[in-house]
């Protein structure tokens, strides 16, 4: 046996095989997209409605992803029920993302209320740190290393945006450019991974085992 049997690695491989279809990336990318588009929409719709309008959009994306998982991904990669430890990690991941979104939203509102849309370096750094920690934890809990890169991109996005706003005449603190770029990267990576899955696997019409074992 040339390779040591690593049960931990086998479990990771099984998990990655199930969740590496790129659909996570598309879903999270579509969430990040609000930070890019909402400032543009807020000029016409106001701050509240420019955010609320994304709810049906997210709903549609979520529905599309659920349908793709059920009808396209599952027949190709099969179904697996993970161990309790892995399920706990998934629950923690969900909690981390919920807390990160609430924190980001709170900081965003704080920026609006206390600084009159000017933000400020401390707030921007804090905002970036929330993303970095959230995606760092998500990468760790999901064993998906590209989430660390996403976290880093999201962390520097407000700072770069502010720089573009001050030095290059970008509107809306540069958010449409920087967050639009990060959302684009996430969605593109997701689409590429999904296409790769479609190319590398073929759908199984049920399973090929005999009717009775």
């Amino acid at each position: 046996m040339s390779q040591e049997i690593s049960l931990k690695e086998a479990e990771r491989k099984a998990f990655r095989a199930t969740y590496n279809d790129g659909l996570w990336d598309v879903l999270i990318g579509s969430f990040v997209l609000i930070l890019a588009v909402a400032p543009l929409l807020s000029d016409r719709l106001g701050d509240f409605w420019s955010s609320v309008i994304f709810l049906p959009f997210w709903g549609l994306v979520y529905l599309a992803i659920s349908l793709l998982r059920k009808h396209v991904v599952a027949p190709r990669i099969g179904a697996v029920q993970f161990s309790r430890a892995r399920r706990t990690k998934l629950t923690r991941f969900t909690l981390v993302m919920v807390v990160a979104n609430i924190l980001a939203l709170t900081l965003g509102i704080a920026a609006l209320v206390f600084t009159g849309m000017r933000g400020g370096p401390t707030l921007l750094v804090l905002f970036g740190l929330v993303w970095l920690v959230a995606f760092g934890l998500a990468g760790y809990l999901l064993d998906i290393s590209r989430f660390y890169v996403y976290g880093l991109l999201l962390a520097i996005a407000p700072l770069v945006g502010e720089w573009l706003y001050n030095n290059a005449g970008a509107t809306h603190h540069g958010f449409p450019i920087t967050y639009g770029f990060v959302a684009g990267v996430m969605i593109l990576v997701g689409v590429v991974l999904f296409i790769r899955l479609l190319v590398q696997t073929s759908p199984q019409a049920g399973d090929g085992l005999p009717g009775e074992g």
Binding site: L7, A17, P75, R76, G78, A79, V80, S83, D207, L209
Partner: peptide, 22 residues
């Protein structure tokens, strides 16, 4: 090995992970 680290799996999943024929 795969069944040891998960609770259950279907045949399609096992086929993909092990590379065995049906």
């Amino acid at each position: 090995t795969y069944l040891y680290v998960v609770e259950s799996a279907d045949a399609v999943f096992l086929k993909n992970m092990t590379g065995l024929t049906w």
